[in-house]
Design a binder for these strands. Structure first.
Length: 211
DNA sequence: TGCCAGGCCGGGT
DNA sequence: ACCCGGCATGGC
């Protein structure tokens, strides 16, 4: 089992190569993407982010000032747009209340940052960890639906395994390094999209076949 | 056409 | 402590 966590990484890296994640030009953009992609296809998220870019709204100041209804309209393609507009507002407000800049907000230890993110309404464990790893670039392992499904398919977890349980599986076995956690999660998403979607009965050519 | 996508919250048992 | 409905668009 312990061995398999490393084996899976090696196979995926050999198969796909480095992934250059997260999609996003700046930490702020990455953070926004982390919220918008909640239970949502990344393709839709890109449309929403393009709208924000086109409206020149990718700064904390602008996002703090925009009306929620207007924000909702811009992020409409990402789905749950009213909900997510509120969540983005909560996030931006929390940051600007506590810090001068995004860098300042990130300039605390990992656990403190995680606690502060989880205290924000609309930020759960996956979104928090995505922000910590990909925007703040601190070493934390991100667990998502693909991670769960892939491990389940290889009998490495039970179906009812929770977030922390799955996260520990990785962090217990891997060196605590940002680039490694970054690559590993990105690779899991890629192989998930290719071979481990919810409706994908055939895994014939999955690189993880036999693990 | 229907089902799915890189969650999370709140209310009901 | 679980369980479940709600939230919503675009793509295959």
């Amino acid at each position: 089992m312990a061995h398999k966590i490393s084996e899976i990484y090696q196979i995926l890296f050999n198969h796909y190569g480095p992934q250059h994640w997260w999609p996003g030009d700046t930490p702020l953009e990455i953070m926004i993407g982390a919220v918008l992609t909640q239970n949502t296809n990344w393709q839709n998220v890109e449309k929403a982010i393009d709208n924000l870019k086109a409206a020149n709204l990718l700064s904390l100041i602008d996002l703090a000032e925009i009306a929620p209804g207007h924000l909702a309209e811009l992020i409409r393609p990402s789905g749950y747009y009213n909900l997510k507009a509120g969540r983005l507002k909560n996030l931006v407000t929390a940051i600007t209340d506590q810090s001068e800049t995004l860098d300042d907000f990130f300039a605390v230890d990992r656990e403190t940052l995680r606690d502060r993110l989880l205290a924000i309404k609309g930020i759960g464990p996956e979104t928090a960890d995505s922000i910590i790893l990909y925007a703040a670039e601190k070493p934390i392992f991100v667990v998502d639906a693909y991670t769960h499904r892939i491990l389940l398919r290889h009998d490495l977890i039970w179906d009812d395994a929770d977030y922390n349980e799955i996260q520990s599986l990785f962090t217990d076995q891997l060196e605590e390094e940002t680039p490694l956690f970054n690559e590993y999660h990105a690779l899991l998403v890629q192989v998930g999209k290719d071979f481990c979607r919810k409706t994908n009965p055939r895994c014939d050519s999955c690189p993880l076949l036999g693990v």
